[in-house]
Design a binder for these strands. Structure first.
Lengths: 257, 257
DNA sequence: AAGTGGTCTAGACCACTCT
DNA sequence: GAGTGGTCTAGACCACTTG
């Protein structure tokens, strides 16, 4: 790299006042932020390759090693996927070998994929509780989707999905039904919304009349309630989902470190 | 480092036959394996500092950068903890700010710590199902521990814990009761067993008579069943645990990436 | 053969902690 | 001030993929 290239060096960091420097942001972290900004702006789309490490190093005026560290972190966070000899690619929910990257439900035996059945998709006004979680105002336009996932014809999951109306303008029952693969893939290609992270709150609950009917279990049967809040770039919440899982033939798998 | 130091270079890797080289093990991975071996042998105990990167580099005859990469991975896996300016330390369940590193249960409000109540601790013969999970033989000596965790006097968790008898020879009710903090801390200091990873299978179940009584919930109330298999170095399973969580005032928190 | 990511080295300097 | 981990660079070479 050229010698006088520190256009964004650590030393340039703004210091709020004499005391307590603002915790020091290393170069690679700034490079990472720039790459994320490019992802967010759509410069590179889901599944596409980003420029090579050397190209990025030239572009940002830093060494390859610094770009490498930024990309390494992003690969560890599943924002990017590295493939030796081929390049670095924008992670996607669409063409992944494991469909449903965020679904931790596993069958006790076998490995059949799940069939999808759309129940409903309608425009709604945001209820207070939903609005709060998504940092919207009560009454803001939203879209509610309900669906069932089945294994070998037996219903296993009942999902109730809430999306901000302004981000998913043209979403409709037909569009959802036409699409193959996970919803998150459709969200990427049709609406430019990437889900990169989620938080789940899990409880055991008793099936109410509606859930019992739809999941074909007795009234009061124990179900796993999985409340998921999904985030896109910049930790912006863009989906709230409440799943009811029937855990007679499946279980929720988790790994602890 | 001295020039002729590649005592364990990548090129030395044994190749099984002409075709399909055994997938290539980089130097840093071999260093990592050596460090893990030292941890396993007890050369550095839980909570202690390991040698500095430069010392390790000298010892293994590689550059600091290679040691750094090995240690970075181990820190990412929570085997080691780096502290700038101080050193690198063996991770421990004992003196951690967050007690219960593996417990994902969170209160809906507040942040009270949980009180522990020991119900039982006895020597047992391994039932078939337990033995299989821990790769033992049916009838092998085991220790079974039952306990309750309570929040503000209200029982929240009922745990049933199975441990291989040969690894936990002197374990007794008194010893468990004397000890402060999480069991996993005691296992480290008293028995040299470090839990480094675990897999959980989660289901919703209905409370049976015994659980209902101990957790003070109605018969048939929905409970979270959390089956945990814990591993020590070398992916050796050393604990099977079945927890029943009452999720009226708490929830199981998970993060997806 | 060319291009990509992956490994390894060596050295300089910075930020943090402790004595 | 000495010692530790953290950042950044520059260059060499290796492993893998594709044309």
């Amino acid at each position: 790299m050229s010698g006088s290239s520190r256009s964004i060096s650590a030393e340039d960091t703004v210091r709020a006042d004499g005391a307590a420097s603002p915790s020091f942001s290393p170069l690679y972290a700034q490079i990472k932020a720039l790459i994320i900004a490019s992802l967010q702006s759509g410069e590179w789309k889901a599944g596409e390759a980003i420029p090579s490490e050397l190209d990025l190093a030239k572009r940002f005026g830093v060494s390859q090693g610094t770009v490498r560290k930024a990309v390494d972190e992003m690969a560890a966070e599943n924002l990017l996927v590295r493939r030796q000899g081929r390049g670095t690619f924008v992670a996607t929910h669409a063409e992944q070998k494991v469909q449903y990257r965020f679904l931790r439900l596993m069958p006790d035996e076998g490995s059949e994929s799940l069939e999808r059945q759309l129940l409903d998709c309608r425009r709604q006004r945001a209820p207070a509780a939903i609005a709060r979680a998504l940092q919207l105002r009560t009454g803001d336009p939203m879209i509610e989707v309900r669906r069932i996932l089945s294994s070998k014809g037996v219903p296993v999951v009942l999902d109730d999905i809430w999306l901000p109306g302004d981000l998913f303008k043209g979403l409709s029952t037909e569009r959802l039904n036409l699409h193959r693969g996970p919803f998150y893939g459709l969200f990427e290609t049709e609406f430019g919304v990437h889900m990169i992270r989620a938080e789940e709150k899990i409880r055991a609950v008793a099936a109410d009349a509606e859930a019992a009917c739809l999941l074909q279990v007795p009234l009061g049967a124990p179900l796993l309630s999985v409340e998921r809040l999904s985030f896109t770039y910049g930790d912006k919440a863009v989906e709230l989902r409440r799943g009811l899982y029937c855990t007679a033939t499946h279980f929720y798998r988790n790994e602890l470190n």
